[in-house]
């Protein structure tokens, strides 16, 4: 009812004619895609379809791999992400990433949350304290960890580690959260709770989530993009993709006939 019929409003992230090559292998082919503000977009597809590659391209995590070449452009709030004048540090402050396996730093809970703030901002102790409280609250960890801020983050259970990784992004007030299979290392109950958290976070952030779990895509997302062999096959409202997909390939994948 809303964004789909409202082409004037530009998305938070816009991908235009984007190609990515690993050496001679083309991992993404002419991708055009727009991610809407404060909504969750799921990227689905079989392994090797380029879904993680696209996600990593959005905050340029592929820069550190050898022999990666890109063509086309990605825009964040109409500012190009690729090009000579791009301030990567500024970009990554606004577009944060959560990885497959929780990767808190081997530091205390407190230091993990304010890691980014310490890098980029000059904050007083009390400002830091309040950021820690606010961030942990927004990921539902404050009640559990308020008295354990000095605990080693690596000693937390997996689910809390993953929440902590989200908290350390939230602490920097980003616009966009990129999540690369954020539940793949978690058990079903923890997964459910992270999904609930994604619902909560949607109020404040644009979220793009890569998942190989179609049920998860159906549960958490407003939009779904289906990729196959580096091509964007279909993109649309999640309920539409999962009930009345336009393309035969999408239907085959979603119904489990293939993939």
């Amino acid at each position: 009812m809303r964004k789909e019929e409202d082409p004037k409003k530009p998305g938070a992230i816009r991908v235009e004619n984007f190609n990515l090559y690993y050496g001679n292998f083309q991992a993404l082919k002419q991708v055009n895609l727009e991610f809407q503000h404060r909504e969750v977009t799921a990227i689905i597809g079989p392994s090797g379809c380029g879904k993680s590659t696209l996600l990593r391209s959005i905050n340029r995590m592929n820069d550190y791999m050898d022999q990666v070449r890109t063509e086309g452009q990605i825009y964040h709030e109409n500012r190009p992400v690729y090009g000579p004048g791009v301030d990567l540090v500024e970009h990554r402050k606004k577009v944060g990433m959560v990885f497959q396996r929780p990767n808190p730093f081997p530091l205390t809970v407190y230091e993990n949350v304010i890691f980014g703030c310490r890098l980029h901002l000059e904050l007083s102790r009390s400002e830091l304290d309040s950021r820690v409280e606010k961030s942990l609250m927004s990921v539902g960890l404050w009640e559990v960890l308020a008295d354990h801020l000095d605990q080693d983050a690596l000693s937390l259970p997996n689910e809390q580690q993953q929440r902590l990784c989200i908290a350390r992004l939230v602490a920097m007030n980003p616009d966009v959260l990129l999540m690369d299979e954020p539940c793949s290392a978690l058990d079903p109950i923890a997964t459910q709770r992270i999904e609930e958290l994604i619902h909560e976070l949607k109020k404040d952030y644009t979220i793009i989530i890569v998942t190989h779990n179609m049920a998860q895509a159906a549960r958490v997302s407003d939009w779904t993009a289906y990729f196959y062999l580096g091509n964007l096959i279909e993109f649309g409202r999640t309920e539409k993709i999962f009930t009345r997909p336009e393309k035969k390939e999408t239907e085959d994948y979603i119904t489990g006939r293939f993939g």
């Binding site: 905050n59 995590m61 550190y64 990567l88 540090v89 500024e90 970009h91 990554r92 402050k93 944060g96 990433m97 990885f99 396996r101 990767n103 808190p104 730093f105 081997p106 530091l107 890691f115 980014g116 310490r118 890098l119 980029h120 990784c165 350390r168 992004l169 920097m172």
Partner: peptide
């Protein structure tokens, strides 16, 4: 040091040097 630490720090906007002295050396 696991690659994940490196990526985590870079994804938070750390420069290469900040990644080295704030994450890699302690780890």
């Amino acid at each position: 040091v696991p690659r994940a630490y490196r990526e985590g720090a870079l994804a938070l906007g750390a420069t290469r040097w900040q990644t080295i002295y704030r994450v890699l050396i302690p780890a």
